[in-house]
């Protein structure tokens, strides 16, 4: 019986969370704006809710627990092999439909980069290939919110946009000194 109560409560949790962002009238208005749209808005996850409520600026006292929860969500590739196949990683990095990294980051030899995120030009030559840098790069791609709460960068691993192995491929594309990313000039010249 107790299990049943918990199951019912668990099922209601996303609904309850959305309720705390949108009032009853607002919920109805969102529901009247398209089923799939309403689904996305009314099933906001707990962390999305926090970012929404604080308009993307988490208060200092909420940040440590937020970061800890984001960090805990990270799954690592088999055998903690953070660097995969850089060529596969390049195909992912430079694909608009896939990871679309170049749209925001400068440094790709294949696509002109944007400036929403920091420049990654010659990332592997700048940062080296230490285990710490590999892990950090992997974690930022897997879940950018574990370092930068509520930032615009997609949480590729958490949201299932890339598998851990695909993320390791992108890490290799950025870090491997033999990768095109580090041997060829970035498209668009120096900034």
């Amino acid at each position: 019986m107790r299990n049943l109560i918990w199951m019912v409560l668990a099922c209601m949790a996303p609904w309850a969370m959305a309720q705390s962002y949108f009032g009853p009238g607002e919920t109805k208005a969102v529901q009247g704006s398209g089923a799939k749209f309403a689904d996305a808005l009314l099933n906001m996850s707990a962390d999305q809710l926090q970012c929404s409520l604080h308009q993307n600026r988490l208060p200092a006292d909420a940040t440590p627990s937020f970061l800890a929860a984001q960090k805990a969500s990270i799954q690592y590739p088999k055998g903690d092999k953070f660097m995969g196949d850089w060529q596969k990683g390049g195909a992912i990095f430079n694909n608009l439909q896939k990871a679309n990294c170049f749209s925001c980051h400068f440094g790709s030899p294949a696509n002109l980069g944007g400036d929403v995120g920091p420049s990654l030009e010659k990332y592997g030559l700048q940062r080296g290939q230490s285990e710490a840098v590999q892990r950090y790069t992997y974690e930022v791609i897997y879940n950018a919110w574990s370092y930068f709460p509520c930032t615009v960068m997609y949480r590729f691993g958490v949201q299932g946009l890339l598998t851990p192995e695909e993320i390791a491929d992108v890490v290799a594309y950025l870090l491997n000194p033999a990768s095109d990313f580090n041997t060829k000039p970035a498209l668009g010249g120096k900034r």
């Binding site: 749209s103 929403v116 509520c150 615009v152 997609y154 949201q159």
Partner: peptide, 25 residues
Amino acid sequence: FYARSGARDMGCATCHVSYVNRRSG
């Protein structure tokens, strides 16, 4: 405008407040 939702944590303010004048594309 400030909501974050969907698989890419999309929200209007995320670009049009936090990254005004920056280019993506």
